[in-house]
Simulated scan of single mutants.
Amino acid sequence: MGYEFTTEDVRYLSDAAAELSEVDRLELSPSTHLADIGRVRARFGDRSGALVETVLLRRRADGKLAGRHWLLTDDALQQATPTVVARHRATRLVDRDVHDVTCSVGADLSALVGVARVVLGSDLDPVRTAMAARNVPGATVIRADALMPCSRGTVVLADPARRSGGKRRHDPAALMPPLPNLLDVYAGRDIAVKCAPGLDYDKLAWDGEVEIVSLSGGVREACLWSRGLAGSGVRRRATVLDADGGGWEITDAEPDDIPEREPGEWIVDPDGAVVRAGLVRHYAARHGLWQLDPRIAYLTGDTVPDGVRGFRILVQLKYSEKALKQELARLDCGVAEILVRGVDVDPAVLRPRLKLRGNRSLSVVLTRVGRTPTAFVCEPGARA
């Protein structure tokens, strides 16, 4: 559990740039922590906890939130939308009046300022609203319950809390506010709701668009877009972002016709956003690929899409631990990257049992083709 900030802490920290800078010059590592805390207490007394916690949270926020000006709480930082993702979402709300009804400390508000016409934020937590007002001076921030609408004619942006005391909540009804209640309250309004990417959206009977977003190769979130904000004819979208904000998208409005063929020269593992969004076939059709098996997300083809890692197939064999061990020994493999999908194999358990002693680094893709567990031994990290 992190430091419990108060509104008085926020008032103090808002004018404590010099004090924060002084604390930030300390190492504050595990080996120096006690000595550093002693120095801060001697210098700043009962303000030391707020100062140290803010410095540590800002360090953790580097690479996630743009700038070093943020006032944060531990839970708020854990759930805060990365700036790159927030800016992407804001591009779909240009020149709209937007009300973030769960604004927390303002990560999404910050991306909306200068893009949306009017930016309003609200939250039930008085500490977070005070932080948001300090963090995003270009937005209007008030204290309000997300389940009691207090604006009209705005696009509603919501991010129900999925964490409490550092623990994740997975049940939509256990979010804060509960997702079903939130959707009922704003029925008929243009709304965008940030959710966990693993949520079962089909159970929500959502009639708009579900966008799955990955950042730097990791799936970060999903966003439910109401029909008025959804792309034309789009129910599912995968958005793949780079750390610099570049990227690409694919939707279920694109064709998904792909051939059924034997494995090609390469295996391609699509980005996790594509897999979570159920757009593997659409991605394959766009790039002239096909599936190793209709129920498995690994793709294959004779080329690799630009910027995507591919695995050049050297050997295909029916998988057994003994057969794979023999093949890797024959190929002089000493280091093996093991990727698994569709078969019950734990790479961490399998790797030491292979007893690799060669000089070559290879990749092993373990999967199922039809009912047959299959191993593909590949050159790792190769590109067409």
Rank of each mutant, 00 (worst) to 15 (best):
Y3T: 10
F5N: 15
T7H: 06
E8K: 15
E8G: 10
V10Y: 13
D15V: 14
A18E: 07
E19I: 12
P30H: 10
T32N: 11
R39E: 07
V40F: 01
R43S: 14
D46S: 10
S48C: 00
V52M: 08
E53M: 06
V55T: 14
D62H: 05
L65R: 05
A66H: 03
R68N: 05
H69K: 08
W70N: 06
W70P: 06
L72P: 04
T73E: 11
Q78C: 02
A80W: 01
T81I: 02
A86F: 03
H88K: 13
G106A: 02
V113Q: 01
V115H: 02
L120I: 12
L120P: 03
G121N: 07
D125G: 09
R128Y: 06
A130D: 04
M131Y: 00
P137K: 07
G138K: 06
R143Y: 05
M148W: 07
P160L: 00
S164R: 12
G166L: 01
L179I: 09
P180F: 07
N181R: 15
V185D: 11
Y186Q: 13
A187M: 06
D190P: 13
D190H: 14
K194P: 05
L199R: 03
Y201I: 14
K203T: 15
A205G: 15
D207H: 04
E209W: 02
V213T: 14
S214R: 10
L215E: 04
S216V: 14
S216P: 06
A222S: 09
C223F: 05
W225Q: 12
S226K: 06
A230V: 13
V234N: 09
R235L: 07
A238Q: 12
T239A: 15
T239R: 15
D244Q: 11
G246M: 04
G247D: 13
W248Q: 07
T251C: 11
A253D: 11
E260S: 12
D269V: 01
D271P: 02
V275W: 00
R276F: 00
A277L: 02
R281V: 03
H287N: 09
G288S: 07
P294L: 01
I296S: 05
A297K: 02
A297T: 13
G301T: 02
D302P: 04
D302M: 11
T303L: 05
V304R: 02
F311M: 08
R312C: 03
Q316D: 04
K322H: 10
A323N: 04
L324N: 07
L324W: 01
K325I: 03
K325S: 15
R330N: 10
C333N: 07
G342F: 12
G342K: 02
A348I: 08
L354Y: 06
L354A: 11
G358L: 00
R360M: 07
S361K: 10
L362E: 08
L366R: 15
T367K: 13
R368N: 05
R371S: 11
A375D: 05
A375Q: 12
V377W: 09
P380S: 15
G381A: 11
